[in-house]
């Protein structure tokens, strides 16, 4: 909080993966930690299985909610191709946290185009700090395959200033009661793995 730099986190995924809830929790925890926060995303058309992206910016004072090209300090990806797609928005000195999951877009499902191979390696050609998370395996370990988003948040939490307790409070505030226990477990599993 001592300098005026705005930190930028770009979240990318496929409609239906729970990126919205994850970006809500992220914004909440950042506000609780005392930052000015802005978050931009697009609903409607984009949700029907299309590419989904959330811009989260925080700092002492944030004006634009949109992250400029080359400005993302963290690219936080829920799916490999959608993460790779937003490479031009990442700061080359930034960090990529990516879920090791492949979801075929329509042209690939139809056999008309190929899904790009070795995306983590391609990301590493440009960015030194690429962290691949096996979100689905950990979510299943937590007890529900739909908690991948919370696993990934746990992994992301290691890179950011808010305390462990502030994260747990934000999750408690936003996750419905009946899914809370499994999401807290998923968060801990995610937080445990990216200490590397």
């Amino acid at each position: 909080m001592t300098n005026d730099k705005v930190t930028n986190i770009l979240m990318a995924g496929v409609g239906g993966q729970g990126t919205l809830l994850a970006s809500e929790i992220l914004s909440e925890v950042l506000m609780q930690a005392g930052y000015d926060v802005k978050k931009a995303e697009v609903h409607g058309m984009a949700q029907r299985g299309g590419s989904v992206v959330s811009h989260v910016r925080f700092g002492k004072k944030v004006h634009s909610a949109i992250i400029p090209e080359g400005g993302a300090d963290v690219l936080f990806g829920f799916e490999l191709l959608e993460t790779y797609r937003y490479l031009p928005l990442v700061d080359p000195n930034g960090t990529v946290v990516v879920n090791n999951l492949r979801i075929a877009p329509p042209s690939v499902a139809l056999g008309k185009e190929e899904y790009p191979e070795d995306i983590p390696a391609k990301l590493q050609q440009h960015i030194d700090d690429v962290r691949v998370v096996d979100g689905l395996r950990l979510a299943e370990q937590a007890g529900n395959s739909r908690t991948v988003n919370t696993v990934l948040l746990g992994a992301l939490s290691n890179l950011l200033a808010p305390t462990h307790e502030q994260w747990l409070n934000a999750i408690r505030a936003l996750v419905p009661e009946k899914f809370l226990k499994v999401n807290l477990e998923a968060f801990e599993l995610g937080r445990g793995i990216v200490q590397c």
């Binding site: 496929v14 409609g15 058309m45 984009a46 949700q47 029907r48 299985g49 299309g50 590419s51 191709l81 959608e82 790779y84 797609r85 877009p105 329509p106 042209s107 690939v108 185009e113 190929e114 899904y115 790009p116």
Partner: peptide, 8 residues
């Protein structure tokens, strides 16, 4: 990259 448009 293959596009990912919305779909039914």
């Amino acid at each position: 990259l293959p596009p990912r448009p919305p779909n039914m």
